[in-house]
Design a protein around this nucleic acid. Structure first.
Lengths: 233, 233
DNA sequence: CAGTGTAAGCTTACGCCGTAAACTAACGCG
DNA sequence: CGCGTTAGTTTACGGCGTAAGCTTACACTG
């Protein structure tokens, strides 16, 4: 009925979904609209995708995959660079990717589905830690620490612009009207703020912390959790 | 028509929404069902809540508020304890709260709305950092670092059980069937794993990093981002 | 006490959504 | 040619959020 050129395919559906989310946000991504965008009825999509949930999972995985796939201009092999640089690169790449696709933030946070992208991402981080001499146990922790940093901090970065747009109270804070109730943030909210620099700070903090962990250079445990548990159990 | 006892109110709606999400997950929370749960028609809820979005915002704020409100048994004033302990307490409390309400994870990640809860939460962290001698600039960074850690790492913890349940590939990994493609994680995936201990590790890492930041004890910047930007710009 | 304003809750309705099931039309291949 | 297979369509169902208008019951006033 149609030439092979414009035939649907799983990949074409996925790409269109990514494009639609990029252009109009996640809430605009409906099967019906996605079909329209592809010049096709909504139900046709189900030939190539199990359902919307599966599509969202695939979208997340496509994003995560970008965190670790090298661009064509990239020449050095991963093992050729210092593990610190390798981890920093992954974290910064994730950061930039999420800034480009802010809709992905909530999906990454909400959908733990394990796809090829996430596996390769986890493998890249763990391999870097192994090369740096981490024990399997610590490498495991390290993966979660790096992952948590990305999907938390870099996610927070990605949603920050929206935060300012919607903040009704934020304006009051800036005006100093809430200085009595919230004295500390009334001061800091006026701080100049370079998002990129702040994220770089966090990346360095985490990588440095990992190195100290590996070398047993962490100070004695604060036991704060134990205190907390006693106080609030 | 009804006695004041069972009259609706904004708070009753909010509490019912929290209970419904706790019991059956976020996807079960619809205005119609929430109404039914309260013995009322869906449209009645709109007398007390602007709409579903506003309700979700209120739910997030209620959760975040729990991260910094003291329980009745709590006696020490915040300033009476070490800033490290104070931060650790907030982070652990957030962790535990999110474990109790896993549906909140994606909401916290996706909804940057500033409500009273978030303001008091931000104030508590920033105040602790000020007491520890942080400059406003560094306190601002510190707030975002702590916040990012919570909403990323602790969120990741909260969704982990679901991850295992849905992981089709994870089983293959454990069986070693993917050892060629993913050698590193094939090793680490079998690591014993105490979530609480790992989170405590991260909390200590962050707090220690903040202290080093304050004291100017961070190693020279890795410049990894600069390299990355040159390589991939 | 009747009369009335007002707020709480209800009814109806509209346009979306995801998708199950059955249908049709084109192609590949014997 | 015939026929299974596959891609895409049609129709339909139940559910969603919520706009608009209606009913009811109470709180006051005169």
């Amino acid at each position: 009925m149609t030439t092979p050129r414009d035939a649907l395919s799983r990949d074409r559906v996925l790409q269109a979904a990514l494009a639609l989310a990029d252009a109009h946000g996640l809430e605009a991504l409906s099967m019906r609209r996605l079909g329209t965008e592809l010049g096709v009825e909504a139900m046709s999509l189900y030939r190539h995708v199990r359902g919307k949930e599966a599509l969202l999972d695939a979208m997340v995985d496509a994003i995560v995959l970008q965190w670790v796939t090298e661009t064509p201009t990239q020449t050095k092999s991963p093992s050729a660079v210092d593990w610190r640089a390798r981890l920093a690169e992954i974290m910064h790449r994730a950061h930039d990717t999420l800034l480009d696709h802010p809709w992905a933030v909530e999906l990454v946070a909400a959908r733990p589905q394990v796809g090829d992208g996430r596996l390769r991402y986890a493998e890249a981080i763990t391999a870097a830690l192994f090369e740096a001499g981490f024990t399997p146990q610590l490498a495991h922790h390290g993966l979660h620490i790096v992952d948590g940093t990305i999907t938390g901090f870099s996610a927070q970065e990605a949603r920050r612009p929206t935060a300012q747009a919607l903040g009704d109270r934020v304006q009051e804070l800036c005006d100093g009207r809430l200085a009595d109730e919230f004295p500390s943030i009334s001061v800091t909210i006026r701080e100049h703020h370079d998002h990129g620099e702040e994220y770089a700070l966090m990346v360095d903090l985490v990588i440095d912390g990992l190195a100290r962990l590996r070398d047993g250079r962490m100070p004695p445990r604060s036991a704060a959790r134990a205190n907390y548990m006693i106080a609030f159990a």
